[in-house]
Measured scan of single mutants.
Amino acid sequence: MQRVNMIMAESPGLITICLLGYLLSAECTVFLDHENANKILNRPKRYNSGKLEEFVQGNLERECMEEKCSFEEAREVFENTERTTEFWKQYVDGDQCESNPCLNGGSCKDDINSYECWCPFGFEGKNCELDVTCNIKNGRCEQFCKNSADNKVVCSCTEGYRLAENQKSCEPAVPFPCGRVSVSQTSKLTRAETVFPDVDYVNSTEAETILDNITQSTQSFNDFTRVVGGEDAKPGQFPWQVVLNGKVDAFCGGSIVNEKWIVTAAHCVETGVKITVVAGEHNIEETEHTEQKRNVIRIIPHHNYNAAINKYNHDIALLELDEPLVLNSYVTPICIADKEYTNIFLKFGSGYVSGWGRVFHKGRSALVLQYLRVPLVDRATCLRSTKFTIYNNMFCAGFHEGGRDSCQGDSGGPHVTEVEGTSFLTGIISWGEECAMKGKYGIYTKVSRYVNWIKEKTKLT
């Protein structure tokens, strides 16, 4: 034993070699072989497995989906700052455009905790909710729209109204504003409101030439003092309507412009014939205590009207009353817009006519005020429907199939267009061939041609 100890002390290297040989010859039971080890760690190889990531292109799944990435790591994937920024906006807080917040056709661009709407022409605001041009839906104005110097929408209202708090709607500024039905039992019968379409306001006024200088022999019209197929109006439903009495009662109609003036057809009036105007009328054979009678003290036909040349060209006249009318729910003026808007309103496509005229061709006159909704007829169809001249200051309205029309005794009465609950004068009943005849239409004086003249002559002093 002493000898062994001496050998170990003198030859430590020998001992180490012996131990190493023993270990190498022993069977290893701690580690699995290569094949079995792979069965336990069965993990798919990654895209760049075996390579240094710093030297390969980034992978979106590896960089940002398996674990949260930084902007720089995302930049490695896209290799483009702009594309990385677009991805980053949604990656950080989701897609803010998912709810489609942009209105009126706006395009949404996502941002971090926010979004941006790219608005089409005519709109602005956070969600493109603000109209900035009158060309689109009248700028959301209830009545009139004008573009300011910086191309912003400025709404306005006709006389007797003021802008509401929203700067879009119009509200009454006087007790009985024009064009409004205020009798409670008839307010439910107000005709369907007309909503502004998209309009090209630059070209809204037709490029028409008034044929002022045409000389033409007097034409022989049949029954051209021209509501057939209409309905009984309720008291106060058309408070701007008046009836004219002269040699015979209810020979023509008219509309209240203001307390002192009536507008009617020029062919209705004769110099030297006494005319009485009755406002607030409903049943011409009954006294309903809503009527107001006034005498006409002055007749002003349009300066281009000449019955000797043509009885229905420039067929418009103004009547001055001896005493002002007292405005109330049964006696209310009709609204008159400017030339541009009167023309736009007419193009809405349908209007209402009213009167006490004959209820059928050569038949009896109506006792109760009649009204009828009539569609506008395109000019080409209008011209083809008659052998008589249709001037540019006239328009056609009615039904091709016949059966409904204005008729004798309705002449001078109103053709009105309702705009968001307020009625505007767009025409004056003038003439036609018979009444409600198939293929024939009622012919009306186009008020847009005469609004400046009306307003100039009827100013209240």
Score class of each variant (00 low, 15 high):
residue 92 V to P: 08
residue 393 N to I: 02
residue 181 V to K: 06
residue 436 A to S: 12
residue 44 P to G: 12
residue 372 L to R: 13
residue 321 L to A: 01
residue 386 T to G: 09
residue 373 R to A: 11
residue 409 G to P: 09
residue 431 W to Q: 15
residue 24 L to H: 03
residue 344 I to G: 10
residue 258 N to D: 04
residue 374 V to N: 02
residue 445 T to W: 02
residue 352 Y to D: 03
residue 160 G to E: 03
residue 310 N to R: 06
residue 359 V to W: 11
residue 29 T to F: 07
residue 165 E to Y: 09
residue 305 Y to F: 07
residue 314 H to R: 02
residue 352 Y to C: 07
residue 197 P to M: 14
residue 141 C to G: 00
residue 126 K to G: 05
residue 12 P to C: 15
residue 330 Y to L: 05
residue 274 K to Q: 09
residue 360 F to D: 15
residue 319 L to P: 00
residue 17 I to S: 02
residue 293 K to N: 06
residue 96 Q to K: 12
residue 391 Y to L: 11
residue 108 C to K: 01
residue 268 C to G: 01
residue 288 E to W: 05
residue 289 H to N: 14
residue 252 C to W: 01
residue 178 C to T: 01
residue 321 L to Q: 00
residue 269 V to R: 02
residue 246 G to N: 09
residue 413 G to A: 13
residue 347 K to H: 10
residue 450 Y to M: 02
residue 387 K to W: 04
residue 301 P to H: 08
residue 448 S to H: 08
residue 381 T to A: 12
residue 93 D to I: 07
residue 433 E to M: 07
residue 225 T to E: 13
residue 295 N to A: 12
residue 369 L to W: 07
residue 229 G to K: 15
residue 461 T to K: 08
residue 165 E to I: 08
residue 435 C to K: 04
residue 430 S to C: 05
residue 35 E to Q: 12
residue 285 E to S: 13
residue 321 L to S: 01
residue 10 E to M: 13
residue 149 A to N: 12
residue 13 G to E: 04
residue 312 Y to C: 04
residue 287 T to D: 14
residue 144 F to D: 01
residue 81 T to A: 10
residue 250 A to L: 09
residue 147 N to E: 10
residue 215 T to V: 10
residue 133 T to V: 14
residue 7 I to P: 11
residue 441 Y to A: 07
residue 150 D to N: 11
residue 15 I to W: 08
residue 130 L to H: 13
residue 444 Y to I: 07
residue 437 M to A: 13
residue 365 S to G: 06
residue 370 Q to D: 03
residue 213 N to Q: 09
residue 76 E to C: 04
residue 52 L to E: 15
residue 55 F to K: 14
residue 208 E to I: 13
residue 455 K to C: 04
residue 280 G to T: 01
residue 319 L to G: 02
residue 194 T to L: 06
residue 376 L to P: 04
residue 381 T to N: 14
residue 160 G to T: 09
residue 313 N to G: 06
residue 287 T to C: 07
residue 76 E to K: 13
residue 104 N to A: 03
residue 116 E to F: 02
residue 301 P to K: 12
residue 267 H to Q: 06
residue 317 A to I: 02
residue 20 L to D: 02
residue 172 P to E: 05
residue 344 I to S: 14
residue 355 G to W: 14
residue 199 V to E: 12
residue 6 M to N: 12
residue 435 C to M: 03
residue 193 E to H: 13
residue 341 Y to K: 06
residue 347 K to S: 15
residue 100 N to S: 12
residue 171 E to Q: 12
residue 366 A to T: 15
residue 444 Y to S: 01
